[in-house]
Each structure stands twice: as structure tokens, then as C-alpha cells.
Design a protein around this nucleic acid. Structure first.
Lengths: 215, 215, 215, 215
DNA sequence: AGATAAGCGAGACGGTACGTCCCGTCTTCTG
DNA sequence: CAGAAGACGGGACGTACCGTCTCGCTTATCT
């Protein structure tokens, strides 16, 4: 489950234990903790594994043994700190549910953890495996919740059938990432409201126009 | 005009020339050329000023004399190579104009210069001035053309009055940046068509619903 | 007798067996074998206990349990491989006996085991206990044979009485070690002949001059 | 002249200067000084380039730029500190001259610099280039003086003509190195006297016996 | 023409962090 | 309870670049 496991976990091994001294859970957590602590004070580029190891009271080797690079470590640290936070509500309205979750996401971006998201996306641009970690551990799980929310909307008739869910979600969240990464304009809750309104209305409108075109 | 000028340009000096040997235009261009060449083979993080200087046959000092850091150099190199490409057409249809320009942008992203866009946005996450350069030299000029295109649509009645242009543009381009930066799904011309359709229809629909709500 | 025994051997325990699993003779020999094998391919400094353990298919712990350090291990390995080889002959001539034994020694130095002698002397320079092992297990036993050879020469009248045996031996073997360790000149059988000639003649001459001086 | 010069010295360049910033003489001397200081407190193996650089207030790079390895550095440091010390006197007696110089050498071995000689010979056993440095910078120059001393003895009739000088010197100094490196017996001035007496008398005796054999 | 000034290439400098190797110790399960 | 396996904290390795500096040389303007 954890990114860091490169070798078999006990469970995967059919109840068998790997030989040798088992991995130190203390060390693992100390490293993740120090990573989170240091990434808040410095940029991703300034963050050094040397410093993390020192802060965690751990040999550099131990870090390299379990994480292939700085990026994977930062994603892991971030993911293990945000697991619970970004759930989708179920209020009976797609608009309300989506806007609410997007605002929770906004809060994370505006918190000190926003810096980590930036760092990961930035570093991911030159490290495909890092980006993949990001998608697997952060994006994908959230998408599952989003799909459910949108499907509920379809069942309730708020959204058209045959809607391309990924299209809608990429447009919605793309608008957030745009202002978050390029910082050319205000990224506020009001902005999120407007984005949701426009995109969800657009989903309905585009579908009905499509029907007319076909008809 | 060039990012790199830190000292007075002749023109600003009232026709006077500064004493001493003037800056070598050869060196400047060799540096920009080598930067473009090397950034295509490596990521931003892997790109080193040492290598650029060596490739350009230039002393490191000369690079540092004119550019404060790697990022500024990369933006400068990129900007000086893409000035002409991303104009907005005027075909009589907002949808067609926007989709066309977005597809041109897509072509740039898919070309070897896409790597530079990635690099700049990535590096910009830990260097505000770099991001500002990106906005000033690349984003803003394009926005001017986009405003004109959208305003023509409003005049033609294709789009509602009082439309928040930046909102629409951030949603449109955000959808592109989203897939470009996170690479979780296909970034194709078909995707652009759908994004345009949904967002522009959404702009109309949201406005008419707003009117009803007010009424 | 073996350097490696740090704990009681069964015999010392009055026929009693120590409790628990007995030491694995297999492991011991595998370690010594791997040590000899690896020291031939690499220098003493390059030789690592990690590599020995891996090559012997043995845990590092097992090595550390029985040998205090790399040097002791190497001496042990070497000694256990050269016990029989350097005997002194008895041909009726000191010159012939000494020259012959020195040539046998020369052959060892020129064989792949010469590298081990080098390694041990080298490592001994920063590890007194290692050097002591070298003297006790390799040098001293040989000296006993050399003393007997020289004393036979004295009895036969080839060498003067009251000869300082250690002085003569240090001069003879020093000449070999000199060229062996510093490698500035050829270390050949011819060289050994000349050394023997000069030193043994010198022993006679110095003694007779000494008598004259006293007389 | 210095071992450390890997690139052209000005003199070799026909009065021309190499381009770029010239080598810092300060740094060079600080490094040599720190090397001598630290080698006295630790063994060669314990001595680290990291520590030398730190002590000298110098970047590690600067050390590596000029010396290929720890050994070369130590030889250089030692040589540059002992250049003047081991001259051969000219007293009118070979025996007296040789004994005197050997006692000077003995004093160096017994001083804190003796540790360096040990270190160099030890490290040289697994590093041929280091040994070569040792021969070129330390052994060879001394040998020149020794040749002159022995030749004076030949001219004065104290030693036979056609004497193999290297043979005699290897026997004399080999006796010293033997006890110095293996430490099995006392290395004193008395020992040196006896060695000189025996070897020089042996040189005469062996020659006269040789003549008899030929006759 | 000479003085003065700045840019230029080259490359050494003091540093920081890299990722690796091996140290000697420890912790676990198996025989 | 020895042994294998292998993770642990640690220290140094030799390398790559950082951004700064010091050279001699070149190219300009200003006396």
C-alpha cells in the first residue's frame, strides 16, 4: 500500500515473513515526519535528503533503501498526511457536493501543504514516475469519489446521461490547478462557485444541444 | 525588453555609449541557443549552467553577468523563440476561433518546446519571479488576443454580455494545462473540441439561468 | 591455536560440550577460502568483509563473531594455507642451505600468496596486533629453522662463534623485503645468491677484524 | 617539481601562463600542512581527505584537483617536509659516512614522521603509483648521495672496484626497513653500526674471495 | 597614442549535496 | 543458541555544479 515498499509485504507473501531484520517502522515514520516538517520551510529544490536523514536521526542509506528519490518521498509523506481529508459529501445536489469538495481541496492548497502539491507537480515534470505516484496515490482515489458524486447527479436527473465524467472533472479541477500553478488571478471560493455553475450548466446545455443536433 | 538586461541599454543612456567593451551579442545568442538545445535533451533540473556555458563556448561568468538564474535564462530563451506562433484567428465564430487557437497551443505543447513550458511552470513553483516572467511574456500577450476573440463573440450575440472573460479563459486553458501537467489522460484535438463546446455552452446557459433567477 | 577462537574450544572445556548449536566448521572454512580467493583479486584495502561474507554464503555476523578484524582474518587465512612450505634443508653448507630456503621464500613471494604477505605487512603498519600475529605465526617458526641452520654452520667452522644470529638473518631477509616491498629493483635468484655471499662472507670478515681489534 | 602538478608549469610552457585563475599557493600549502598535522594523530587508513580539506579550510574538490589520491598527497606532504634533512656527509671514511646518514634516517623514522613512511609503504602495497612516487621523490634522490659516498670509498681503496652499489645499499637499508616494518627486534644506533660493519666488510671480503676464485 | 574601463574565455576557489560503499551492530526467523 | 539474512545509524568516498574569484586578453570610449 505504501509507496515505499519495494519488496514484498508480509501479506503478499502468504503470511510468511521475509528473512532478516524487518524494516523499522520508527525510522519510516521519522523520515516521513521530517520530510513534512522540512518541506514547509524550504522549496522542493532546497530540500535535501541529507537534511531529512539528519533531522530524522537516520542514515541516508535508510532513506535511499525505501524511496527511489526525493519526489517519491515527498509524495508519500504528503499522501500519508492527507488520506482522510478530501472526502466527497452527499447532500442531494451535485452542484453543492462538488463545490464543497473543491473548497476542501482549496483549503489544502492554501494551507502549508499546498507547497507540497506544487513541489510534486513541479518535480513530476521531469520525473514521470513521481507523477505516476501522484496520480495513483492522490488523484485516482479522489476521482473515485467524484465519479460517485456525478453519477448520483445523473440518477437524480441533474446531469445528462452519457456524460463524459473525466471531461467534466478535468475542466472543473483544471480551472483550480490553472490559477494555483500560474497564480495570475485570485483563487477563491467565489471562483469555485462560478466554475461549478458554468461547467455543470454547460454539461446540461451541451447535452441538450447535442440531442437537438442529432434530432 | 530582454529579461537579461540588468544594466543600462544604450538607448536609455541618451545615445551615449557606456565606456568599456560592449556586451557581446554573439555570446548572448550562443547562450540562448545552447539553452534551447540542452533543455530539449534534459529536464530543467538536469540542465546546468555549467553545461550551457561549455556548450556555448562561453565563460560561466558571462552567463551570470546577464541572467540572475537558470529559470530566467530558460524563459528568455523560450520567449525569444516563440514570439510569432500563437495568434488568434477571426473566422466569425467564437467556438471555431477559440478551438483553433487552442489547437495551435496544443501543437506547441506537443512539440519539443512543450518541455520548456513544463520546465518553466515547474521551476516557477519555487521561483515567483520566474513565474511572473512567464505570465508577462507568454501568458498576458496571448490573453489580449483571447479577450478580443471573446468580445467579438459577445458582439455577435454568441456569448452573453457581462461575461467574466478571465473565468472562461481559465476554465478553457486550465483543462489543457490539467492534462498537460498531470498526464493522466489523453490531450487531443477531440478533447479540445469537447472542452470548448461544454464551456462555451456553459457560458450561455449559466447566464440565461442567472437571468431567470434574477427575474 | 587458531587466531579466530575467541571463545572456549570444546577441548578446553574438559570434554564438555558448550550448550547450544556448535560452531559451524563449514562456515569457518568457507570464510577462509573466500578470503584467500578474494585477496588474490584485490588489495587488502579493497577487500571488504561484506564481500567475503557474501562470497562465503555466510552472515557478516559470523565473520565478526570469530575474527576481530579483517587483518586477523587475512593472516589466519594465509597461515592456514602455507604451513608446510618453508622448511630449511641440511646440505652441509650454510651458504647453500640459506640460499635455498631464501629462494623457496622468494617463490612464495612471487606466487599469488606474495600479495597476501604484502597485504599483511601493509595492514600491520596500522594494526600492531596484526603484525604480532604475523611475527608469531609466520616469522618466528621460520626463525627457529634458520637458527639451527646457522648453528650448524658455526659448528662446522663456516661461521664464527659468538655470531649475532638475528643480526645476520635481519640483514639477509631485510634485503629481500626491501626489494619486495619497494619494488625499485629486480628481486631474482641471482640477487639472493649475491646477498648470501656478501652477508655470510661479511659475517666471517667482521668477526676476524673484531678479533684483530681486540688483540 | 611538485608531485601535485598535473598540468603544465609556467616554466615548461615557455614563459607563457596557462589561462584561467592560477592555482592558489596558499591552498596548496594549507593542504600539505594539514596533511602532516593529521597523519600524526591518526593512521593512514583513518586519515580522510574530508578531514584534511576541512582542517585546511579548503574544498574537497581542490584536494582532488591536484592529488589523485590520499597516498600521493601524503608522499608529497612528507617529501616537502624532509627535503633537506637526509644529506650524506663526507668525512673521509665510507663506514663513518654511511653509518651517520643511516642514523639520520633512523632519527626520522623514530620521529613522528616515521608514521608517514610506514603509511606510504603500506598504502603503496596496493597502489603502484604511490610506490612510484615514493621511489621518485624520496628514495631516488637519496640514492644519488649514497652512490657518491660509496664511490669515494672505492677511490680511497676502502671498497673494492666493480662493486654493485645497489646491492650494497639494498642490504644496508633493507636491514633497517626490516626491523622498522616488522618490529620484531630493536632498531637502534648500535644495530646500525653492526649492520654497516658486517656489510661493508662483507663487500671487501666477497670481492677478495671472488678474485681468489677467479685466480 | 595612450589611458581607462568593461566584457570576455578560462578555470581555480570554498562549498553543498549527491548517491554509493562499507563499517560494525542489531533484530528477526530457521535449523 | 549458532547461523543467514538483511535493516540499521553512521562516516567517507569521489563527483557534479553551485556562484564567486582572479587571471590575461580584447574591444571599446575618453582624454
Amino acid at each position: 500500500m505504501a509507496v515505499s515498499r519495494q519488496k514484498q509485504t508480509p501479506d503478499q507473501n502468504g503470511g510468511q515473513r521475509a528473512p532478516g531484520r524487518p524494516r523499522s517502522e520508527n525510522a519510516r515514520q521519522a523520515i516521513l515526519r521530517s520530510t513534512l516538517k522540512l518541506i514547509r520551510r524550504a522549496s522542493f529544490a532546497e530540500l535535501s535528503i541529507e537534511a531529512i536523514a539528519a533531522d530524522a536521526g537516520v542514515g541516508k542509506t535508510t532513506v535511499y533503501r525505501w524511496w527511489p528519490n526525493k519526489g517519491a518521498l515527498v509524495v508519500d509523506a504528503f499522501a500519508s498526511s492527507t488520506e482522510e481529508e478530501l472526502r466527497f459529501p452527499d447532500s442531494g445536489s451535485v452542484y453543492r457536493d462538488m463545490a464543497l469538495q473543491m473548497k476542501q481541496f482549496l483549503a489544502v492548497l492554501h494551507s502549508s501543504r499546498g507547497r507540497i502539491v506544487k513541489a510534486v507537480i513541479a518535480a513530476g515534470q521531469s520525473d514521470p514516475t513521481l507523477l505516476e505516484e501522484f496520480r495513483n496515490r492522490l488523484l485516482r482515489p479522489r476521482r473515485q469519489g467524484a465519479y460517485r458524486t456525478l453519477r448520483r447527479g445523473i440518477e437524480r436527473g441533474e446531469l445528462p446521461e452519457n456524460l463524459d465524467l473525466d471531461l467534466v472533472l478535468d475542466i472543473l479541477y483544471g480551472a483550480i490547478y490553472m490559477r494555483f500553478l500560474i497564480r495570475h488571478d485570485e483563487l477563491s471560493e467565489g471562483y469555485i462557485n462560478e466554475v461549478c455553475r458554468l461547467v455543470l450548466d454547460g454539461a446540461v446545455a451541451a447535452a441538450s444541444k447535442g440531442r437537438k443536433r442529432k434530432a
